[in-house]
C-alpha cells in the first residue's frame, strides 16, 4: 500500500470472491449456500412483497417489469447516457486541471505554502455546500452539473499528485542532476514515473467522488440523468422504477470502482516490482 492510500484513501475494494483453497472443496460449498440464501431471500421478497402497499415498497418481478418498461421507452438509455456524459466531462476536466495544479503545488514550496491549505480545506469540507451557488451562477444546466462533478473530483487528485511529487526520492533526482539532466529531463525521467502510483490513487478517489457528485448534482441541479429519473420515480411513488435506477447505479458504480482499482494497481505496479528488485 502506498503512503497516499494510508493517508487518505479508502480501504481497497474487497475481493468479490475470497480465494478458495480447493475447487469443489468447502469454499465452493459456502459459496453455494450464500447463493442459496440470497435466492431464498429474493424469492421470499417476491412472494411477501406483493402484499405490501405498492406506494411503500416493491418486489423483484415488478422491478424486472419496470426495467423492461424503462428500457423499451428509451428513458433509461437517455438518462444513462446523459449521466455518463456529465461524469465523463467532469472527470476529463479533473484530469486536465488536477495533474498540472497538483504537480505545481508539490514541486514549488512557495505555492504549496500559499495554496496548500486551501486545497486541504476543499478536500475535506463537504463540497455540496457550493451547489446552490452553482445553480445561481450557471443555472439549471449541464454546465452546472459538470462543474460540480469537477469540484467533487479534482481535489483528491490535486492532493495525491502533490503528495506524490513531495515524496519523490531526493537521491534519484540528485543522480539525474549529477548526470547533467535539466529540469525538464528530471521531471520526465524521475518525477513523473515516481508519482504514477499517486496518480493512480488520486484518479481512483476522483472517480468515486465524481460519481457521488454526479448523483448529488442530478438531485439538486435540475432533474436529469439517472438521479433525475430516480427522483421522478420516487416522487410518483413508483418504487419499482426507483429500484431499477438504483440497480443501474450499482452496476455503474461497480464498473467504475473496478476500473479505478485496476488503474491504481497498474500505475502502482512498477513500485512493487522495484521493491522486489
Amino acid at each position: 500500500m502506498t503512503e497516499a492510500t494510508e493517508a487518505n484513501g479508502l480501504a481497497p475494494l474487497p475481493a468479490v470472491r475470497p480465494r478458495r483453497k480447493r475447487s469443489g472443496g468447502p469454499g465452493a460449498l459456502t459459496g453455494l449456500s450464500v447463493l442459496a440464501i440470497y435466492a431464498l431471500l429474493i424469492a421470499a421478497w417476491d412472494v411477501f412483497g406483493r402484499d405490501v402497499n405498492p406506494y411503500f415498497s416493491s418486489y423483484p418481478s415488478a422491478i424486472v417489469r419496470a426495467a423492461g418498461e424503462l428500457a423499451r421507452s428509451g428513458e433509461l438509455a437517455t438518462a444513462l447516457l446523459g449521466s455518463l456524459g456529465v461524469l465523463g466531462q467532469g472527470l476529463l476536466y479533473t484530469l486536465a486541471a488536477g495533474l498540472p495544479v497538483g504537480f505545481a503545488i508539490g514541486r514549488y514550496q512557495f505555492l504549496d505554502r500559499t495554496f496548500g491549505p486551501l486545497v486541504t480545506i476543499l478536500f475535506v469540507a463537504p463540497r455540496e455546500v457550493f451547489v446552490p451557488l452553482l445553480v445561481l451562477w450557471f443555472g439549471l444546466s449541464d454546465a452546472s452539473r459538470v462543474i460540480f462533478v469537477f469540484l467533487s473530483a479534482v481535489f483528491p487528485l490535486i492532493y495525491n499528485v502533490a503528495d506524490g511529487v513531495r515524496s519523490v526520492n531526493q537521491s534519484h533526482a540528485e543522480i539525474a542532476q549529477a548526470y547533467g539532466a535539466n529540469e525538464w529531463q528530471t521531471i520526465q525521467e524521475v518525477t513523473f514515473p515516481s508519482i504514477l502510483p499517486f496518480i493512480g490513487v488520486g484518479a481512483k478517489q476522483a472517480i468515486a467522488r465524481g460519481l457521488t457528485g454526479l448523483v448529488a448534482a442530478e438531485f439538486f441541479i435540475g432533474v436529469s440523468g439517472l438521479g433525475g429519473l430516480l427522483q421522478k420515480a420516487s416522487a410518483l411513488y413508483r418504487l419499482d422504477r426507483a429500484f431499477v435506477v438504483i440497480l443501474v447505479l450499482v452496476a455503474v458504480g461497480f464498473i467504475l470502482a473496478r476500473a479505478g482499482d485496476l488503474m491504481e494497481a497498474r500505475l502502482g505496479r512498477w513500485r512493487i516490482s522495484e521493491r522486489a528488485y
Binding site: 475494494l13 468479490v16 438531485f219
Partner: peptide
C-alpha cells in the same frame, strides 16, 4: 463475511446519496 460481502459491495461502490428518495418515502 461471505454472506454480507455482495450486499456490502453493492452499497460500497454506489453513491449512497442515491437512496435518499427511498429514505424520504
Amino acid at each position: 463475511r461471505r454472506l454480507l460481502s455482495p450486499l456490502m459491495m453493492a452499497f460500497y461502490v454506489t453513491p449512497r446519496l442515491a437512496l435518499i428518495p427511498l429514505i424520504i418515502i
